[in-house]
Write a protein that binds this DNA or RNA. Structure first.
Length: 260
DNA sequence: ATGACATATGAGATATGA
């Protein structure tokens, strides 16, 4: 079972790239973030032609998440619980049944939160509190659970090429990292760190500006967090960095986890 | 340095991203 996450920064602008990567990598499930379109505008048929079932939770212009799966998507839920006034489309969840059992998969597009002195940062922190509460509930099921997506969190200095550049940024502020740790400390495992250890230099995002890609000035902000039952089955994690070198790429690249 | 770059909206300039 291969489960991937990828922030595509507009599915309309990235349809060809997404199709090319799916043909190349062939994951069973993909969590897409920032589709930036309403549900009716998502090019589902093109992905269905590749054998994927598609569910979306989109909105006009901003945000939006989609789940693509070769397996049937069951118990689909849209939106992160905890705030009925939240209109931003940032969470979709479903269950898939693989040959070796079921996985519940939550697809996350966590708010950016910049600038830190704004309401946007308070929204980010509240959203993380809601995610913590939801993860806590899901963990009581004691089943394989993968919470994958663009967390907009740099967990540690080793997750940035130049950590000093991020000290006052909403992605790396102590409060942000503390909330991320609180979520991990519920009993979740960072899949990439379990698989690859604490090696530095692994990034999933390179800014379009100032030649960040050419200088490998990246950050690791796309994560797959695993319940104990999912972590037990993890066999490998990789980052498909080469995608960032494609023509007109998104600024994020796919992260893929393999499970036995 | 609020800029570089990129996308959506909508038709010029602004909001958002990280």
């Amino acid at each position: 079972m291969q489960i991937a996450t990828w922030n595509v920064n507009s599915i309309k602008a990235r349809t060809d790239a997404a199709l090319a990567w799916l043909k190349e990598a062939g994951p069973d499930v993909v969590c897409l973030q920032e589709i930036k379109c309403e549900d009716s505008a998502f090019p589902s048929a093109l992905f269905e032609d590749l054998g994927y079932n598609v569910v979306t939770h989109g909105q006009k212009t901003y945000n939006g998440v989609a789940l693509l799966s070769k397996l049937r998507l069951e118990d689909v839920r849209m939106g992160l619980p905890g705030d009925s006034d939240d209109t931003q489309a940032r969470y979709i969840e479903a269950v898939v049944h693989g040959a070796e059992g079921a996985f519940r998969i939550g697809n996350i597009y966590l708010p950016n939160g910049n600038p830190p002195d704004s309401e946007k940062y308070l929204y980010k922190l509240r959203w993380m509190d809601r995610l913590k509460a939801h993860a806590h509930r899901l963990l009581t099921h004691e089943e394989p659970l993968v919470l994958a997506g663009d967390y907009n969190v740099i967990p540690a200095p080793r997750d940035a090429k130049v950590p000093e550049n991020w000290t006052s940024d909403a992605l790396f502020l102590p409060q942000t990292r503390a909330r991320f740790r609180e979520i991990l400390n519920l009993g979740l495992t960072d899949a990439l760190r379990q698989s690859l250890g604490d090696v530095p230099g692994i990034y999933t995002f390179w800014d379009y500006q100032a030649g960040a890609w050419q200088k490998n000035n990246g950050i690791r902000i796309d994560h797959l967090l695993l319940s104990p039952q999912a972590a037990d089955r993890l066999t490998a994690v990789r980052v498909d960095k080469h995608v960032r070198g494609w023509e007109r790429p998104p600024d994020h690249v796919p992260v893929i986890a393999n499970f036995k």
